[in-house]
Design a protein around this nucleic acid. Sequence first.
DNA 1: CGTTGAATACCTGCTGCCGGGTATTTTGAT
DNA 2: ATCAAAATACCCGGCAGCAGGTATTCAACG
Lengths: 209, 209
Amino acid sequence: MKYIKIILADDHDLLMDGIASLLHDVPQFKVLAKASDVLQAMDDIKALQPDLVITDISMGEKGGLELTRFIASEYPLIKVIVLSMHDDVSHIGTMIDAGANGYLLKNVRQQELQQAIITVMEGGQYVQQSLSTKFAKAMQQDKQEKPLLSPREIEILRLIALEYSTLEISERLFLSPHTVETHRKNIIRKTKVKSVVGLINFGRSNGIL
Amino acid sequence: MKYIKIILADDHDLLMDGIASLLHDVPQFKVLAKASDVLQAMDDIKALQPDLVITDISMGEKGGLELTRFIASEYPLIKVIVLSMHDDVSHIGTMIDAGANGYLLKNVRQQELQQAIITVMEGGQYVQQSLSTKFAKAMQQDKQEKPLLSPREIEILRLIALEYSTLEISERLFLSPHTVETHRKNIIRKTKVKSVVGLINFGRSNGIL
DNA sequence: CGTTGAATACCTGCTGCCGGGTATTTTGAT
DNA sequence: ATCAAAATACCCGGCAGCAGGTATTCAACG
């Protein structure tokens, strides 16, 4: 492989231009295209067949996740490195599950970015140093803990967050209000929060909402 | 003025490196330093006396705002350009009030960044093209509409979002529970939401939380 | 085949949220 | 000096949310 062909996909053009500029310093990195939305990125991938795509986790409407899944299913040979603003551990797992090979924060230094690209292109996975500790801890917990909330409970939690009352939820899901009550109480018990407000906050910080 | 001396302050090192790299293309731009937190930025400003500081609105703990105010009060001759992830109109006003001379989104293109720097250094104000329309509209609204929520109401909304009950809030603010009740009811009336859940969502989408 | 967890449904009782008022004081703007 | 808005405080009534149970059905897993 002579060059590592790279496509950038991020809705922050400045960042993309910046990354592109940084990558220029390494001769074997070749930035083929910059895409600022998911559709354009997909087109570029089809047309240019890159070796690596560097994308943002939150490109407009959660596009980074979609894009990663698209690449993983359609072009499994193409590597994906995800950049993120958030050090939110739950997002890392989601992206890795979706098929990302690397996960970096946007506060990463040039050197570590280059290291990450090399590692990923050699077939490895690269999670930013400052994150790997935190992530490893979360993974251990995952092995012990069960999913905490059942699918049905998550569904109801989402509806609660959309301002539906218990009665409205029961009508929407063709359930008895009692059942919805029970679910909500179970959610509150499991998450150990005090009120609906706590539920919203829990959902946000755990990537459910 | 031979060079335009620039200091970058942003906790996303990658972005800073990128910007620095972009600015290299213009010979009369000279990046003196990169600071990844507010204190370091202040030190650098004192020591190096730049002509321009480019900073992020959300550097860790809302540091961009602090930094801008610091510069405006201590070194009024130094220009400030603010970069932001959000196209949230409310933030623009805050930063301009704090003394920022330019406001750009991180999706700005290299060319517009350079243009913004030149405009600002010539004594002008520069708000990104794609924002100026929206901003102008918001300004017009501001002349008609009032801030919707009063400072006290915002304070209480924040506490509600932190899972405090009415009673707890009243104790915390040394108020009668009745007063807190009144405030909450006024907030709900003003924002036209149905419940606390709606309040949280309102707060999130309006940058209050 | 038995057990376990998820999903369903119901009951009681209480607290706090919420909608509907009214009213005083303080503050800011004109 | 005056007027408007914000902040403070109180009252009443209704119902939803929440805590604490109990119980049945069904699918999954060993």
